[in-house]
């Protein structure tokens, strides 16, 4: 579904995309369109994009074409989603230990909507770190 979502082609565009939104959360997915994990994530993102369009906007970035952020944001996972609000990186306590980003594919659209909404609400209040409505720590898996 990646072809249905807007891609950012260079670092400047990424920066402008983050700067241009005044009242919406910017969700940036870093990864590769061909990556299976990214494909799953893109599917979910495409599904929810129209639903969250009032408070969030979704962009895709190819980390091979745009390697500028790889070091800065530690982009070594196959798929990474990050949230920005008014040029501020919003951290999410997902229970995984890494609050900076979602580095797996969320397949449930509603879960992702909930996370983005939490990010939006928190960010509007001026918080830099919000707590995800669902705990994704592995302790529940085992």
């Amino acid at each position: 579904m990646s072809y249905m979502l807007p891609h950012l082609e260079n670092g400047w565009q990424v920066d402008q995309a983050i700067l241009a939104e005044e009242d919406r959360v910017v969700v940036v997915r870093f990864g590769h369109d061909w990556d299976p994990t990214c494909m799953q994530m893109d599917e979910t993102l495409f599904k929810i994009a129209p639903k969250v369009k009032n408070f969030a906007v979704v962009y895709l970035v190819d980390i091979t074409k745009v390697p500028d952020f790889n070091k800065m944001y530690e982009l070594y996972d196959p798929c990474t989603a990050m949230f920005f609000f008014r040029n501020k990186h919003i951290m999410v306590d997902l229970g995984t230990g890494n609050n900076n980003k979602i580095n797996w594919a969320v397949t449930d659209g509603q879960e992702l909507i909930d996370i983005i909404e939490t990010v939006y609400r928190g960010a509007r209040k001026g918080r830099g770190l919000v707590i995800s409505p669902k705990d994704y720590s592995t302790k529940y898996k085992y």
Binding site: N10, G11, W12, V14, D15, I18, L19, V66, D68, F69, K71, M72, Y73, E74, N87, H89, N98, N100
Partner: peptide
């Protein structure tokens, strides 16, 4: 243009 720095972003160390 230096991406990231251009908008004043700083990275993090997880």
């Amino acid at each position: 243009y230096v991406p990231g720095v251009g908008r004043g972003a700083t990275g993090f160390t997880t």
